[in-house]
Nucleic acid binder design. Structure first.
Length: 112
DNA sequence: CAACTGACGATAG
DNA sequence: CCTATCGCCAGTT
């Protein structure tokens, strides 16, 4: 019986799941593209997550600024959202190192 | 329908 | 440490 397939939702596409996961990221925390992809069920769909942020953030209110790359820094280019994302994160209490890096030990979101 | 793209990730050198 | 390359998936053109 496949009726046990997650009682609540989960029947959506990967993209839909990614959106939900991103919305689950608590304030003051951050997640990586790869991390989100893993929780969505696709360990290597980090690039897909990127696409979704671009696509969905315009329609839905996604905390896209809480999603960063593996290095703990912002991947956007200066003038293309970099400053905006950094500012939003700082407002939520996330601090950046001297290399514009975020300390994962303090801010990485871990859905338990 | 095929090729291209996108804010990545991991591995190899 | 850095660059280069492949892989990954879905949406656009």
């Amino acid at each position: 019986m496949k009726a046990e397939m997650q009682k609540t939702s989960q029947c959506s596409s990967f993209s839909q799941r990614v959106k939900k996961i991103i919305q689950k990221i608590p304030k003051g925390k951050v997640a990586t593209y790869g991390q989100v992809a893993v929780y969505a069920g696709h360990p290597r769909a980090a690039r897909q997550v990127v696409w979704i942020l671009n696509s969905s953030s315009r329609k839905d209110k996604l905390p896209w600024h809480r999603v960063i790359n593996r290095k703990g820094s912002i991947s956007l280019k200066p003038g293309y959202g970099y400053e905006i994302q950094k500012g939003l994160l700082r407002k939520e209490g996330v601090k950046f190192g001297k290399d514009d890096k975020i300390d994962f030990d303090l801010y990485l979101w871990i859905p338990s």
